[in-house]
Design a protein around this nucleic acid. Sequence first.
DNA 1: AAACCGAGTTTCAAATAATGGAACTCAAAT
DNA 2: ATTTGAGTTCCATTATTTGAAACTCGGTTT
Lengths: 270, 270
Amino acid sequence: MADRSAGDGTVGKALEVLDRVAAFGRPVRFTELLDGSPYPKATLYRFVQTLTNQGMLSYDPERQTYAMGIRLVRLAHAAWHQSSLAPIARPHLDALAEEVGETVHLAQLDNAQVLYVDKRNASRPVEMFSSAGKVGPAYCTGVGKVMLAYLDEAILAPILEQQSYHRFTEHTLTDADALRTELRAIRQNGYGFDREEHEPGIICVALPILTAGGRALGAISVTSTVERNSLAGLEKLVPRIQETARAIAAVSRDWGFPDQHTSNRQVETN
Amino acid sequence: MADRSAGDGTVGKALEVLDRVAAFGRPVRFTELLDGSPYPKATLYRFVQTLTNQGMLSYDPERQTYAMGIRLVRLAHAAWHQSSLAPIARPHLDALAEEVGETVHLAQLDNAQVLYVDKRNASRPVEMFSSAGKVGPAYCTGVGKVMLAYLDEAILAPILEQQSYHRFTEHTLTDADALRTELRAIRQNGYGFDREEHEPGIICVALPILTAGGRALGAISVTSTVERNSLAGLEKLVPRIQETARAIAAVSRDWGFPDQHTSNRQVETN
DNA sequence: AAACCGAGTTTCAAATAATGGAACTCAAAT
DNA sequence: ATTTGAGTTCCATTATTTGAAACTCGGTTT
C-alpha cells in the first residue's frame, strides 16, 4: 500500500493514524495502535488526543477504546456530493439497474483501491453507508481493473509493483504481468470482466466512465452469479452499460468534473 | 459555532480548513478560502496542499478548484460502522418506519449540531449519503432538542450561549431562555416535538435513545406534515417509538456503546 | 502489606516543522 | 506594453512537535 503520508508533516502523520483505526474495523485500545506504530508512545498519544478533540475519533472512556468519529460522516456527506460521481450518476444508475435486473455498482479509484460510491441492488432496497464507502482491491474486481486499464503508466507502474496480490479464488490474477496483459485486453475491448476472481460464483462486466481526454473518472459494473448468468450473457449488456457510462461522462463534463481527479504533485525529492 | 480546533495545533487548523470547504457545498477556488480565513496566504496554501496530497481534498487543475476528497468517503464508511448507531438500529428503524408509515430519522449529536445517520422514507426508496451525514441545527429540530435536553449542564451551557439563533419560521425558538424552557418540558415528558420550527408545514415527534446512565446516545423522530397529520396524532405514536428507542438502547449496551460518546477533555488553559 | 506490573498519562529540553512577509510567475485584462 | 490579481515559492524567524524518561494508578503477585 502506497505510503500516502510521506512528507506531509504532522497532518499527514495524524491522518495516517485515522487510517490505522479504520483498518481495525472496530474500536481499538491505545496499546493496539501503539504496536505496529512508527511513533513513540507519547507522540501517538498526542495524535490520538488531538483527533479525539477534533471529533475525527471518538473515545469510549469506559472501555478505553477509540473508534472513528462521527465528524467524518458529516465531512463525507459533503465529499460524496462534491467529489463523487454518485449524485450525478444516480438517475442513470437507477434506470440501468431496473432494465438489466442485476446489481449495479458505481466505483471510483482512491489511492489504488476501488471505492464503491453507489450501488443498486436489483431486488433489495439500498443499504446506505454500508455499501457506499466500501473499498476493495483493484486488481481482482471488474471496476478496479477497468479503471487501472486507463491509468497513466507513470501512476500505474508503482501501483502494480507495490500491490500485494492475494489469491482470493483460483481465478485471481496474482502478478503484475498477468494483470498487465488483462489491462491491455480491456483497453482493446473497452470493457472488462470479473471471472470469479474475487469471490467464487460471482461474475461481472465493467465499463469505464471516460472523459474526453480518455481518463477514467470511475466505472460501472453489472454483477451476477454463475448460476443466474454467464460472461456471455453479461457481455450482451455492454452496449446498454456503455450508454449509461457515456451519459454519466457527458453530465460530469457539463457539471465540470475534473479531467484528472486526484492530483499528486510534489514528486518525492528526498 | 464552537471553535473546535482551539488549541489543537497544526492538525486542528488543517481540519478546520476541511470544514470550510465542506461548508461551501461546492468546489472552491483558493481565493474564496483565503478571504475569511485567519491564516495568511502561504499558510493556507500549504494546508490545502497537504490535504490534497492526503486525499482529503481533491483538486481540479483545470478549474483550479478544491473539493472534498473521496478518502473521506472511505473513512466515513468505517465511522458509520464503528461509531454510529445506524448499523445497530437498522432493523428496528425498518420495523418502525413500516408500522407508522411516516418518515423516520435517526440522529446523533456532533459538536452541537444534529447529524442524521439514517433515514427511512415511508414511500420513496432510501437516498444514500444524500441523507446520512446531513447536518442541521439542534435548536429547532425534534431530534436536536431532545438530545440537548439530556446533555450535562456543563456541556449544554456553552452550546446555548454560542448558538446563533436563526428564525427559520415564525415558530422557531430564537433564544436560549425559550429553548431552556422547552428542554425542561422535554425532560419532563420524555419526548419532544418540532412544531414547524424548522420548516413550515413540517412537524415531528422525537424521542431520545437513552443509556442506563441517562445520557442520550442519539434520537429517533417520526416526521409528518400538517396536512397529513397533527401533533396530537404524532403523540399517539410515542409508545411505539419509545419501544424502538429502548430496543436500540438495549442493543447498543450489549454491543458496548460508550455511555459518553464524544469526550472533550483538556479544558482550555491559554 | 509491600513490591511489582502494565496501561495510560504528563513533563520538558532538544529537534523539527510551521509560519508568513515578501518576492516571483504567469495569464488575462487594460 | 503595462497593470492586475491569482497562484506559487522562498527562507529566516518562531512556535510546535518530539520522545525519553518519569509518574500515576488500578490490579496482581510475592
